[in-house]
Amino acid sequence: MALNGVLRPGFVQVRVLDMAEAIVHYRDRIGLTLVSTESDGRVYMKAYDEFDRHSIVLRECDEAGLDLMAFKVCSEASLDDFATKLAAGGYEVTTVAAGEQPGVGRRISFMAPTGHRFDLYAEIELSDNGPMTNNPDVSQLDPQGMKAIRFDHCLLYGGDIDGTKKVFEEILGFSISEMVVDDDTGMIIALFLTCSNKAHDLALVRHEEDGKLHHVSFLVEDWSSIGAAADIITRYDVSRDIGPTRHGITRGMTIYFFDPSGNRNEVFAGGYHYYPDNPLRVWKASSVGKAIFYYERELNDRFMTVVT
C-alpha cells in the first residue's frame, strides 16, 4: 500500500480551563515541547519524535473539550480533491486561511454528523527540533515526563456514528479495523478507523450527546513506558481513570488519565499493524468488557460515560 490522501492525525485543538496548569500537564507530565505561545493565548506543543511544527494546540476557555481534530493530507491537490468530494457529498466546507495557526497552511474544515469539527491541511512547517535526519540519533532533545513519541489518535463520542463512518470511509478513504456491535440488532456501538498502517487513527463511540471528546492519545515506546507513566501519574497526583492495562481492540497497552481541565488523555504502546486487506474484526456488545479492558474483562462506568 502506498499511503496517499489522508496521511495521519496532524493536530488537535483542546479547550482548557487554566492554561498554566495545562502547560505543566502537557509539557512536564506527558513530556511535550512547548513550541510557542501566540498573542491570542493559544499554546502550541509537539512530541519529540514529530517532524511537524506542532500537534497539540491548547486554547483557554471556560468549557473543557475539543475544538477540532485535523488530519494532514499528502498534497495541496489532494486537499482540493477532498474539498470537492466533501461538497459533493453534501458537507458544508469552509476554508481556514493559512497562518490561522502559526506555520500551518490553508485548511479545509467540515462538521461531521457526530458534531465534531474536522480540518484537513497539506502544509505545515517542519520543527527545528524534530527527529534528526543526518546520522540520526534516536532523539535530538532528551525525552521528558512520560516521553510521548507522538500525538496518535482521538476517541470521540457522538450520536450519528454511522454518518461519520460514511464520510471517513467513502470520502476520506479510511478503513474500519474493528467495531463493537449490538448482539441482537447489529447496530454499531463503537468504531475504529484507520487511514494508515495503524490499528486506529480515529475511534468513535455512539453517545446521546454530540461533539464530545473521550480522549486524546499519545504513543509511548513500550509496556515499561506505561509503567513509568503510571509512576508519574501517582507521583504528581494526576487524576487517573484506568490502567495500566491492555485493550482487546487494537491490542494496545494503555493507561488513561485526565488533564487538569478534565479532558481524558491516554498513553499507549503496541498494538497490531493494519493492512487494508485485513478482514474486519468484530466484537459483540456482550463481550465489550474484554474488548475494551482485556485484563479486567469489564467496563468501568467512568470510562464509558465521562467525556468533555
Binding site: 478534565g262 467512568r302 468533555t308
Partner: peptide, 8 residues
C-alpha cells in the same frame, strides 16, 4: 466521581 478536574 468523574474526571476530578472540573471538566465533565
Amino acid at each position: 466521581v468523574g474526571c476530578r478536574n472540573g471538566g465533565c
